[in-house]
Write a protein that binds this DNA or RNA. Structure first.
Lengths: 340, 340
DNA sequence: TTGTATGCGTTATCAG
DNA sequence: CTGATAACGCATACAA
């Protein structure tokens, strides 16, 4: 299987390589007849430019790198879909990597992407990412970087996220407005910004509605096995508080699902005895019994917007226009179902 | 931001480019002292080889391309995870694309991957892929190709799949063994091999157990909106057959979930009145009410095995060893829950 | 209008 | 032990 290069085309037509190259790029200084000839042979032989050579010359790979914490995840699968679709539109390839929520792996992945010479990078940070040197490295190299969903504050780059605090505030306010008073929170780890923000939104909603914040109602769930964590913490919560708790706001749907499983198994009626609201609106939430109220995060939109921004910044960079980082908020919706 | 090249290193050390290159590759004919000097500066300056240049020279990209029908899919997300993990181990990058179950797009994606010069390609075919010329093109170029899950028979390449016919046979046999006799099948389209095989397994199980095959119990579900399709066909089925149907085997879980939704909404008891078994064992199936029996497909294993094979074939190709396509069957498990 | 020469960064051959 | 040179395939400034 012989690969077709400009050289081969040139030889066959008795032309020089540069003429063939220029003909293909529709340079004005090549005769129409020559262009015609070249194009015909190119089509016939099915010539495609060698992309490594093009990259080497142009210093562009037409590729963006994406690092996400976990591929098996309803929300992220939508994000990926959005990224792929946007990249496809603009003729960019996507190299996908997963950090498995591990900072060290994430650091390594960044390194790999930089080595590969991708034109831009999209990252949703792992839960264990504290130090941001690896991100700074990207910035220093002048490569457009966009953080999405799980972002960090202390880095100067574009960010696409939801307003976690506001969304959490709305959810908890909804519970309060509907008569719930002793509202527990199954929170995420202390590091991820969105887990922190959701907690803060929860707390603020309580305070703004003159409900005392009770830290014993907050359960830490950062074990990476959300479902089981939800189940176990639901049990623990009932042991701790008995009847003195009437609702839970969970930092994600999976925790809520685990909790529902516990309540269903133990004859604890939802929402009569305990109401729940989750976060992320996984598909499963709509078909559960009872169906779970949740906050829709619009993953697809987040992915496509993030890709759009990074591609825009790549464009700016190529044109020598300075990049000014932007922060995009994707609106959320509180979706009320049967769990509250 | 200045990028570091061999040239820069050479200049700073007063060496030639080739010596630096060889030092880095640990050639035996470079003095230890020189190697030392080179390595130190390389570390200090954080030199990384330009991957386009390396690719151009070596004619390898260290990248594999993956095309799947749909990223938002429980099963495929596991497959992706498996592929990523295996590729990562072997220092390969993964370019991900989705066909959206559209043959034309799939064809275009293949073209893009070939242009990009990926070292190998993994594809799960779209539901609408009939013609295989695009796959032949890959073969002709001598690029290792592995089909997984949704494969085609008429192409000579490695394939990784489950034994759909056998899995379906087992599921339906289970139903029969447990007293169900009027078993409906919600089948997939006529084109995808696995949908065909699952249907054939269903049919054979009936025949082998002396149950008459009744084509009016087979419902075609190829609308790409599985959940709704399941709901609607469940309704239709009840209208058509009333009490004269007692179980359904569905070609995927989502159809079963839609059907369950219909039955739950209409007071049709599961499994007393209607039993169900799905296919793929999505997470959601385990938390539904009632929980859905299903066939576990081991997506992660399928992904990692597929990647393993394609990487192996790339290796063979590089070493000049002829590639002999292999066919791998990933074992399935019938998981019995409360729906039958 | 066409062709020549040069360089992108790396590697490998061959000469010194 | 080191270095000059060519080549991978393409694109462009410049010469003809």
């Amino acid at each position: 299987m012989e690969t077709i290069t400009l050289k081969k085309i040139a030889e066959q037509l008795g032309l020089s390589i540069s003429t063939v190259s220029k003909a293909l790029k529709d340079y004005p200084d090549v005769s129409a007849k020559t262009k015609e000839k070249v194009r015909n042979l190119v089509t016939e032989l099915n010539y495609v430019p060698n992309s490594s050579a093009v990259s080497l010359r142009s210093q562009r790979t037409n590729t963006i790198g994406v690092i996400i914490p976990e591929t098996v995840h309803h929300f992220f699968s939508y994000v990926i879909k959005g990224i792929l679709e946007e990249a496809d539109k603009k003729k960019y390839n996507v190299i996908l990597m997963q950090s498995n929520e591990d900072y060290e792996i994430e650091k390594k992945q960044v390194e790999l992407l930089l080595n590969k010479g991708v034109d831009g990078i999209l990252i949703s940070l792992s839960n264990t990412t504290v130090c941001l040197d690896h991100l700074e490295k990207i910035r220093v190299q002048g490569i457009p970087l966009v953080l999405f969903d799980k972002i960090a504050k202390n880095i100067n780059c574009s960010k696409v996220k939801v307003d976690d605090r506001k969304a959490a505030y709305e959810a908890v306010s909804y519970l309060i407005d509907h008569g719930y008073r002793r509202i527990a929170h199954f929170r995420g780890g202390l590091i991820p910004q969105n887990s922190v923000d959701r907690f803060l939104g929860y707390k603020k909603a309580l305070i703004d509605h003159d409900i005392e914040f009770d830290s014993s109602l907050v359960y830490m769930c950062d074990s990476n096995s959300d479902f089981t964590d939800g189940f176990n913490n639901a049990e623990k919560m009932i042991q701790d508080h008995g009847d003195n708790v009437d609702a839970i706001f969970t930092v994600n749907d999976l925790l809520a699902i685990g909790a529902i499983d516990y309540f269903n198994a133990n004859g604890i009626k939802i929402p009569e005895r305990i109401a729940l609201i989750g976060f992320s609106n996984w598909f499963v939430s709509s078909v559960l019994t009872p169906s779970l109220s949740s906050i829709e995060q619009h993953g697809f939109e987040m992915g496509s917007k993030s890709a759009q921004i990074v591609l825009h910044e790549i464009d700016c960079k190529n044109k020598g226009i300075p990049i000014e980082p932007q922060q995009i908020i994707i609106e959320t919706n509180l979706i009320i179902r049967n769990s509250c």
